[in-house]
Design a protein around this nucleic acid. Sequence first.
DNA 1: AAATCGATGATTCTATCAAATCTGTCAAGA
DNA 2: TCTTGACAGATTTGATAGAATCATCGATTT
Lengths: 235, 235
Amino acid sequence: MKQVAGPEIGAILEVEPAPRRTETSYTRVAERLRQEVITGSILPGSWLRMTALAEKYGVSVQPVREALQQLEGEGLLEMFPNRGARVKTIDRGRLIHIYEIRQALESFLCRQFAEEASLSDIRHLETLQGHHDKAIASGDRGLIMRANKAFHLFINGRGGNREAIDLITRHYGLSQMLRARYGFDEGYWDRVLRQHHALLEAIRARQPSDAADIGAAHVRHTMLDLLQRLDLAGI
Amino acid sequence: MKQVAGPEIGAILEVEPAPRRTETSYTRVAERLRQEVITGSILPGSWLRMTALAEKYGVSVQPVREALQQLEGEGLLEMFPNRGARVKTIDRGRLIHIYEIRQALESFLCRQFAEEASLSDIRHLETLQGHHDKAIASGDRGLIMRANKAFHLFINGRGGNREAIDLITRHYGLSQMLRARYGFDEGYWDRVLRQHHALLEAIRARQPSDAADIGAAHVRHTMLDLLQRLDLAGI
DNA sequence: AAATCGATGATTCTATCAAATCTGTCAAGA
DNA sequence: TCTTGACAGATTTGATAGAATCATCGATTT
């Protein structure tokens, strides 16, 4: 494919040189704020006072404002003109909706993986699941969660759909925050293990529809488990 | 330091009073910029100079900066520290990925609609399709597109999943821009009409899986049609 | 009790300066 | 001759402080 210069038509498929991303004040503030919101050290529903944040981070107000705009775009908080910014609350309804989106996306990506994965892809996925099994046997929760994330990330990322991955990882931050606070149910990881193996089986057998169904059910069970934990905590 | 006067644990399910949204300078700038990008009067790949925009809109640079941050969050443009903002280019790969996401979501929402819709919902959907049929018969393209949008919006919105709708309408802006430039294929609207009626039939018969399949195929055909138009235009 | 007014604290905008990046030119070296 | 690198200027972005604006809340008035 020959690329011809000329802003009219060429712009649409122009291959960008991808400028390197340096660091500035507002990117650093955004980074730190994002962490604090995700880890839950700033609670949902709380208002963020710009002057206070500016003082806290040792910058002026403007960089804080821009960081907030940025995080609003990511869906972590809401901005109200002349009123300020507030960390989004997570009512049950929104939680369910977010998991529905993730269910739809991951189900689709599982189907795609089962259709298109090469043999070495499948081999690699088996390896990842092996790590996951070992992690569960060890009982180290940090290790388990990392192995689980790696497993899903490989399936989701295989199709190269960056937009979808961004959406899912964004939601991942949210569930991470909630799990950090409310934990997992008793038999949770055993069920995850069984479902992963079932998914692997469907992929090996090249049955995309089964893979899609299992993927959807997997996300759905995760959501139900989380809702139950919220129940137990009286939320 | 008391930077936030936040509610305690209960905040998670608190129902917010939803402060009304007023208008400010940067929201207006964001609004206008969004329109210009979506309608294609600002071309993909072009750099946005803050000073120029500030002068054009008769404001200072800061509101422009914040509008840009906002639009970056919406995925319309990319910001590079110390380099500026650029309207995202739409290569074929990204276009396909975006339609894959929409396919996954709309398919899911069709299934949900077929499962949960009341009889009056179905009745109303039939009315909307009636308008769509008439619009196609009339040949008025603006009318057709509005009727089509209303039909899908009703299906997608029935479950009340605001997050999903936001995602889909965001993508809608993109496809609107491309259609404005590259148009539709010959038999496009006839096929849309047939698929809508098939979808209605599956919903009436309460067959969620069929509805999901038809919804997915519908989005997929739309994507293929658009890709073909790009081919014809030599893109 | 409802409405108005003013004080207070927060956000938003402008003007200005500092820092980074881009552009064009020109000389040195292969 | 062509490429490479460096340098000065012009341009653009980034940050700050202060002024203007807006929203909230309590006291006063109707």
